[in-house]
Design a protein around this nucleic acid. Structure first.
Length: 283
DNA sequence: CAAGAATCCTGTCAGC
DNA sequence: TGCTGACAGGATTCTT
């Protein structure tokens, strides 16, 4: 899925096109994705003006202007394969795997496409956004000041789980996914198999620094384009060209001579997910 | 409680 | 070509 940099990029794309527009028509094309859509979703957002956008972890919050004394936010998660298509209003047929469609007063059609349907859409009161069950247990934003060595140290202390899994745990830090955890661990020269509680203060400090750095660079690149991710306007992110270990099995890492002197980047499976790392430089 | 596995779903690609 | 199995950016829920 889209991890934090991709979600941030999608949110910026939506914001550029939709801010201040009115939703003239909304429709759902099935009753659910990861979870059932809230009752009357389409009818409840139809006629609303889009006031602002916010990202929290890998969630997008589209805030609607006040109606009948309360303001609601549309909570969107892109799951693994979710995409937002923005196009000029054209043919009437619904593209394959488009589950929600919005139309704006200035003639744009926004389609939420998600083949695997791990994504979700909910409608919640803006005033209670962070109390939502999906947001309530999230850890700090990785790019915020609250994600620092002291915080991470406290969260990792005594933990017997691999650091890889600890960083994917959204209650420790919210927004890192498989790619950026692999990349951050490489940059910090820490093996994904190290037990979380065994990291030294110096390593934790380094990890926090390079994780932020990786995300900042990825956002600047417009995210990473793998199979099916694209920005709302169809632009492709290009951070995938900057991957140092992700998907690069057998290649030498940037510090190593590579085969035959060194077997290069390896792939292992940890809690069902691929970890890519260099066993020689990551200890 | 904590850690790991199973689960939801579809598409794509490698190998035979 | 067509079939099969592995794998994919996530995160909850179920087992041990």
């Amino acid at each position: 899925m889209p991890e934090l940099p991709e979600v941030e990029t999608v949110m910026r794309g939506l914001s550029a096109r939709l801010l201040g527009r009115t939703i003239t028509h909304a429709a759902t094309h099935r009753p659910d994705m990861r979870w059932p859509f809230p009752q009357g979703l389409a009818a409840r957002i139809q006629g609303s003006r889009i006031g602002s956008f916010r990202r929290r972890a890998k969630y997008i919050l589209m805030r609607l202007s006040e109606r009948d004394g309360t303001a609601d936010s549309v909570l969107i998660h892109l799951g693994m394969s979710g995409r937002m298509n923005i196009a000029a209003v054209g043919a009437n047929e619904i593209p394959l795997h488009e589950h929600v469609t919005l139309h704006t007063d200035d003639g744009w059609r926004i389609g939420f496409v998600d083949p695997r349907r791990f994504g979700s859409v909910d409608l919640i009161p803006t005033a209670a956004e962070d109390q939502h069950r999906l947001l309530q247990a999230l850890g700090p934003e990785p790019l915020g000041g609250d994600f620092n060595a002291k915080h991470l140290q406290a969260r990792l202390a005594g933990r017997a789980t691999p650091i890889k899994a600890a960083l994917l745990d959204q209650s420790n830090v919210a927004g890192l996914g498989n790619i950026y955890v692999c990349e951050a661990l490489f940059r910090a020269s820490i093996s994904p198999e190290r037990l979380a509680g065994s990291l030294t203060p110096a390593e934790i400090k380094r990890l926090v620094r390079v994780a932020k750095q990786t995300l900042v660079e990825a956002i600047a690149a417009g995210g990473s384009t793998l199979r099916d991710y694209a920005q709302p306007d169809g632009e492709l992110g290009y951070f995938q060209h900057a991957f140092r270990v992700y998907g690069r099995i057998g290649e030498p890492c940037e510090h190593c001579p590579g085969p035959p002197k060194c077997s290069g980047i390896q792939r292992i499976v940890q809690s069902g997910r691929s970890s890519f790392y260099c066993p020689r430089t990551q200890r």
